[in-house]
Amino acid sequence: MNTMITVSKEQVILAFQYRHAAQTFDTTKKISEDDFNYILETGRLSPSSIGLEPWKFVVVQNPELRSKLKKVSPGAQGQLDTASHFLIILAQTDVRYDSEYVLDQMKNVQNMPEEIVTYFSGVLKDVQEVRGLLGDERLLYEWSAKQTYIAMGNMMTAAALTGIDSCPIEGFDYAAVDQILEEEGLLQGGNLKASVMVAFGYRNEEPKRAKTRSNMDQIVSWS
């Protein structure tokens, strides 16, 4: 029997108010192994289309690898130098409805019977056809990459709920980062590509200005 653990709405809103995009982190403070595994677990448990989990999380702790990435990541200069943990989220590229990856996820991760695999791969084929994804490797990558942001958002929120800071990063040369990761043997022969980076740690200073957002009536409409 599943047990529902309730977090108050006030706690969640406070976490969102607390979170900000930290440009640098306190290098004297490290996230504990237990706390970072908790953050990774919220990414692992994140939703994805038909539960295909089209991502992989690469935790970059090696100083030499961080130095290589810094040269091609102008948006991560302070974070690569100071983050307790630096994460690159990779997107699966082999996500056609009939790909080896998709069929393996259905059969061996989700333990679907053969007839259910046939049904869901057919559903996925219809979805990918109507979206114009079939026959376009770039669009299939982007379909996966969009889903990686769900996992990243969940990890950042989970971190904020425990007082851990974070910063999402898109400011990097995607082709150069892929080349570096390929040389490290992390892209599974081209079946993975960099999607987004996110740094975690503890802030070394408070934000210089209060958080601002548009009013609710400016961004929400009901029909």
Rank of each mutant, 00 (worst) to 15 (best):
L87Q: 03
L87D: 01
R96W: 01
F16C: 15
F16S: 14
V109T: 14
F86K: 12
S84A: 14
W143M: 07
S67F: 01
G43Q: 05
R44A: 04
Q110N: 11
E100R: 13
S48A: 09
F16A: 15
T118N: 09
I116W: 00
G122R: 03
G132W: 02
K29Q: 06
L69R: 10
D98Y: 04
N108H: 12
H20Q: 12
V72D: 04
K70R: 15
Q23V: 06
D35I: 09
L65S: 09
G43K: 12
G75N: 07
A151L: 13
K125H: 11
Y18H: 15
Q23L: 09
E64W: 00
Q61S: 15
E142D: 13
D94P: 01
V58E: 12
G43C: 07
S49T: 11
S49W: 02
L65T: 15
K70N: 11
R131N: 08
L65D: 07
P54C: 11
T28H: 13
Y38V: 07
K68M: 05
F120P: 06
P47H: 03
V127P: 00
A83G: 12
Q61V: 05
D26R: 15
S73R: 05
Q77S: 08
V58A: 12
Q147R: 11
L40K: 14
Q110I: 06
T42S: 10
I88C: 14
F25H: 06
D35W: 04
V127Q: 06
